[in-house]
Amino acid sequence: MDDYIIKIENVKFKYSKEDTDYAVDGCSLNIKKGEFTAIIGHNGSGKSTLAKLINSILLPTEGKIYVKGMDTADDSKLWDIRQAAGMVFQNPDNQLVATIVEEDIAFGPENQGVESSEIRRRVDDALNAVGMYEYRKRPPHLLSGGQKQRIAIAGVLALNSDCIILDEPTAMLDPSGRKEVMDTLKKLDAQGKTILLITHYMDEAVLADRVVIMDKGNIKLDGTPKDVFKNIEAIKKFGLDVPQVTELAQELAKEGLNIPPDIINVKDLVDLLCQ
């Protein structure tokens, strides 16, 4: 066993035999244990398809995907794979099943036949991890969008998943809801969880250890946020936004100011200008 928790090897996928284009077209990507990776790309770039492939909701047309060494095409390992890599989806209303928050979080472990005292412990731990313990007796439909997404994340945590895959978890949230979710992810990252975040928001991607940009079913850029976002022209060509601070830094550098091209947060630029 090496320390890659997810290995994607030359994966191709198309939704139907008649399709001429592959939704994922020869993709290779290895994710290390504990890494926080953000995948960005416009709609139709293949990023959500890739997430579903990792979770064994879809199977590769060609190539292989391994989660903790398990082949996602191996039917007998299906539940182990989904337990190892839990998913959180975009719409918080579509993934909560119970009428009380703590029952919703217990749903996963109950189905795995976990013993009840152990379920209690896991549910409490998961609620604390996402900062929702005091809401445990509430009905989920009365929570805000950000709170619902945190409950969905807690549901994955209660399965003792090593890896959390989130498919645009903040797309339907307002700025404060987005912040709640991102703060939760940063906390989990610090605790050593492997996080794979699919997003449209560049300000979320800059918080990751690693940024992967997808276009036309393939990986176009891969590196630290600084390395990736300094390629402003390329990123715009893929139909994506770049952080305004990076764009401003590069514009100022063009005018002769001594500013490096890989500025990705406001504080760094302000510090440089105020020296």
């Binding site: 307002d174 700025p175 404060s176 987005r178 300000d203 952080p243 305004q244 601070v245 401003l248 406001v266 504080k267 630029l269 302000v270 200008l273 105020c274």
Partner: peptide, 20 residues
């Protein structure tokens, strides 16, 4: 009041605070 501002507005605001 919980609203996001464009990053540019944030940069401008920080610079002004530092005397720009």
């Amino acid at each position: 009041i919980g609203l996001g501002v464009p990053q540019v507005a944030e940069i401008v605001n920080e610079l002004r605070k530092r005397g720009f």
